[in-house]
């Protein structure tokens, strides 16, 4: 069930700040494992509770609740950012003249509908979507190869700006964007089986998503070339536009839109579910009461979150990274971990 991770990252890819993005993807897996290890340790210390239980356990009642609120807002915010991503794609690729509000209004109820279904339905959804995305992705690759637009020469020059830049990018951005969001799954911890199996699936999904991402980036670079990829807004979309098999199968933008919309659907639904769970813990009511109102909130937020696409991207890469991702994905869990460690009596630790 942990294949959720692939969600949007396949399409959006990692932030492209340096030429050798595919190498970044491959390298990110190392710190990502460390990050995942941290979460897994947290799970082991949390002894069966989910993230929200752990927060209250470690920080006490009031501070814990404050942190839960922070996480709830954070999840909702990420969900709305994802929605915005999709909105931008739909606006650029499919519906140029339709107002964005309508697009969002159509989409949000479905996200909520998926979230209300609960974790089991989300799991089934994720499997279905991952299968679908994989299938479409493979189709895309084959079509690109057949239309002769893949050229491995475009991968060079290799490491033109030195290794340091690549390594820097790993920690500055890629680590937090797709992988850090694993923290969502701490919320569902109680539903996802024992910690032993969980750690294995976690590692497996990390690895597979890293491979998929690397592959996607390689494909994009090979088709578009480094310069183009750097400036393109939706690289995969642009790559798909190059498909031309025998002048008949042309312009497979729709395929990419399909992948993207389903990815966002899944991710937003998971985040929404986590968010409504947080709200339910805070206000001590059941989860499903929050799904629809919060979905509306996400929809509104996704429209209000930034004025235009450029602002949206820069906000995502700079502000969100430092102000939200790093504290909430790394520092707070680490502190929780330490607190739990201290609070656990010596005997129970082993």
């Amino acid at each position: 069930m942990l294949v959720f991770l692939l969600g949007t990252s396949i399409i959006y890819g990692t932030p492209r700040l340096v030429p050798d993005t595919w190498l970044v993807d491959l390298l990110t897996i190392v710190p990502a494992f460390l990050l995942a290890g941290q979460y897994l340790l947290l799970i082991r210390l949390g002894r069966g509770g989910n993230l929200y239980d752990m927060l209250i356990g470690a920080w006490g009642k009031s501070a814990g609740r404050l942190l839960i609120l922070a996480y709830t807002v954070y999840f909702l915010y990420i969900a709305s950012r994802n929605l915005r991503d999709m909105l931008e794609l739909v606006m650029t690729a499919l519906l140029r003249n339709t107002p964005g509000e309508l697009v969002v209004i159509l989409f949000v109820p479905i996200v909520a509908f998926a979230a209300v279904g609960g974790i089991a339905a989300l799991g089934r959804l994720s499997i279905l979507i991952v299968l679908m995305v994989m299938m479409f992705f493979l189709t895309l690759t084959f079509l690109l190869i057949f239309s002769g637009s893949v050229d491995s020469e475009r991968l060079f020059p290799f490491l033109s700006e030195g290794f340091g830049k690549v390594a820097g990018s790993v920690f500055r951005s890629s680590l937090w964007f797709p992988y850090g969001e694993l923290i969502v799954f701490l919320v569902f911890r109680t539903y996802l089986g024992e910690s032993g199996t969980m750690s294995r699936t976690c590692m497996f999904s990390l690895l597979s998503s890293a491979v998929a991402l690397t592959f996607s980036d390689l494909l994009q670079i090979c088709t578009l070339g480094m310069e183009n990829k750097k400036y393109s807004v939706f690289a995969l979309l642009d790559a798909a536009r190059l498909i031309n098999v025998a002048n008949f199968i042309t312009r497979m933008d729709a395929l990419v839109a399909f992948i993207f919309i389903f990815g966002v659907l899944l991710k937003a639904a998971v985040l929404l579910y986590a968010g409504s769970r947080g709200a339910a813990v805070l206000f001590k009511t059941e989860v499903n009461r929050f799904a629809y109102p919060l979905a509306m909130l996400i929809g509104a937020l996704s429209l209000l979150v930034s004025r235009n696409h450029a602002e949206h991207v820069s906000e995502g890469l700079i502000h969100v990274m430092y102000w939200l991702h790093i504290p909430l994905q790394f520092i707070v869990p680490l502190a929780t971990l330490l607190l739990l460690w201290i609070r656990t009596p010596g005997g129970a630790r082993a």
């Binding site: 479905i110 509908f113 998926a114 279904g117 339905a121 279905l128 389903f262 659907l265």
Partner: peptide, 10 residues
């Protein structure tokens, strides 16, 4: 289609 898929999974 997304609605249909979500519906099916539920």
């Amino acid at each position: 289609f997304a609605f249909l898929v979500v519906h099916l999974t539920r």
